[in-house]
């Protein structure tokens, strides 16, 4: 069976898998963004907590994804749960880190000006500090999403959902008739999904980053 025939034959299954993959990455990324920005906000005020957050971020990212998923399986079982937890954990690290770094990079004279014209702390955060730190945070979210796409594929090992299933099925029976087709379909699917997400992020950047601070020629990557 040629690759095209394979696609025509299995498109139903492939679309379902792709949908699962996209859904799980999107869900994890939303949670990772919320948690990452929140922990970034909490820790950036204190010198020590902020450094701890950035160090933890690098440390967690150094762990092998498969090992983390493996460690989670005895605790939460197989399937979607360990996948979402692992993805969220990996995804939130770059976001948390760039939130801390981004908030600290806001010009202190602007923070003082915001206070000086009578903004309360929450208002200052919402109207001045976060909007100014948003471009690096969005970049981190974008980078995180690309990374999660790859990790989500590995999650199929723990019976997770997504296009990883295709890849592992092909790898499990390398002599099978459709082995190559399966691996190819899974991999290409992931690449296409990643590109689609990237396009969405570019649009989000256009809409949410003020023209006054946007780097010429689009968002920074």
């Amino acid at each position: 069976m040629s690759f095209w025939e394979y696609l025509g034959d299995r498109h139903q299954q492939l679309l379902t898998d792709a949908g699962e993959q996209a859904g799980i990455v999107f869900l994890s990324m939303v949670m990772a963004t919320l948690l990452g920005v929140l922990t970034g906000l909490v820790t950036c005020r204190s010198e020590r907590a902020g450094s701890l957050a950035t160090t933890a971020s690098s440390a967690v990212l150094a762990l092998p994804a498969l090992a983390v998923i493996g460690l989670l399986v005895p605790v939460v079982g197989l399937g979607t749960a360990p996948t979402v937890i692992a993805l969220t954990l990996f995804g939130l690290m770059p976001v948390m880190r760039s939130t801390v770094v981004g908030l600290r990079a806001v010009d202190p004279s602007l923070v003082e000006a915001a206070t000086g014209i009578g903004m309360s702390r929450p208002m200052r955060l919402a109207r001045v500090e976060l909007p100014l730190a948003w471009p690096p945070i969005l970049t981190a979210i974008r980078v995180s999403t690309r990374m999660l796409m790859g990790i989500a594929a590995i999650a199929a090992y723990a019976s997770g959902p997504g296009l990883g299933k295709e890849i592992f099925r092909g790898l499990a029976f390398p002599d099978g008739e459709n082995a190559l087709n399966e691996v190819l379909a899974g991999t290409l699917g992931i690449i296409i999904l990643t590109l689609l997400f990237d396009v969405v992020y570019v649009l989000v950047g256009r809409l949410t980053i003020s023209g006054g601070i946007r780097a010429p020629g689009g968002t920074r990557v």
Partner: peptide, 20 residues
């Protein structure tokens, strides 16, 4: 906070918010 809204404040570094 209320006090500062009723006192204008201009600094050397203008303090204008670049995203607005």
């Amino acid at each position: 906070v209320g006090l500062r809204r009723r006192i204008g404040y201009v600094t050397r570094a203008s303090g204008l918010f670049p995203h607005m």
